[in-house]
Write a protein that binds this DNA or RNA. Sequence first.
DNA 1: CATGAAAGTAGTAATTGTTACTATTTTTAG
DNA 2: CTAAAAATAGTAACAATTACTACTTTCATG
Lengths: 126, 126
Amino acid sequence: MNYSRQREQILEYVKSVKTHPTAETVYQKVREDNSNISLGTVYRNLDRLSRDGYLLRIKMANDKDRFDGDVSKHYHAVCTHCNQVFDIFTNYLKDTDDKVSKELNCKVLSHDVIFNIICPDCERGF
Amino acid sequence: MNYSRQREQILEYVKSVKTHPTAETVYQKVREDNSNISLGTVYRNLDRLSRDGYLLRIKMANDKDRFDGDVSKHYHAVCTHCNQVFDIFTNYLKDTDDKVSKELNCKVLSHDVIFNIICPDCERGF
DNA sequence: CATGAAAGTAGTAATTGTTACTATTTTTAG
DNA sequence: CTAAAAATAGTAACAATTACTACTTTCATG
């Protein structure tokens, strides 16, 4: 993979925030430093970076994909009102893949968990 | 909610299968009985039926939504090769919503789990 | 029953998030 | 340096879904 400034900027931005930005948001933010970057480049590199393990792609139900600079195994919670995404580091299910593997008698690669929540901000009225 | 034949046919079809069909598949199948039904009607009613709790909408990562006539709490496994979706009835996490609720200090409505698997058929070569 | 307002539909157009394409520019091994 | 490989910008295309509109069906009420 050859170096590109655009990819570096994209990775740096996503790693620097905890907001789980969408491709569009990454585009807007990187454009503040590099007004020439194109949306296609952002999509292409987010895809590449997540396929190669530098980023996590969070596929949201009926919403745009989000990206996470924290590639450690953890879950996510999404507020059903404002769509903000939060990390959940506890309660990771270590043995579940094995259990399901025995149950279905097949190879289990990974699992994803999403909690549907109402975040504190939205709870206290908005 | 007023009666409609289309909605009845849609619900009946999804309830009758364990294949977790997409909207397009539901459209094709219902059309065998009712060649006048339109795709928009299928989308509209699948949405309505799942929002009202008659069906489950399974939002697949980077793939079309699937629908499940079994509205009991359970998880799903999707084969990363053939995209088939399977039900997983065991290992449902009863207390997890409460734990996450305490952790984030917010209301947790529900959670979804998807296991990424390689199904037996695909495993034995395809 | 008749009726008319509310709810639903068919068919099509529009939208949205994402991917593909092409000509040009950048990277990098030799 | 230089040329092949890789990457980009900008635009067009795509696929899944939603919105719109004119027409049809449902159903509570007289």
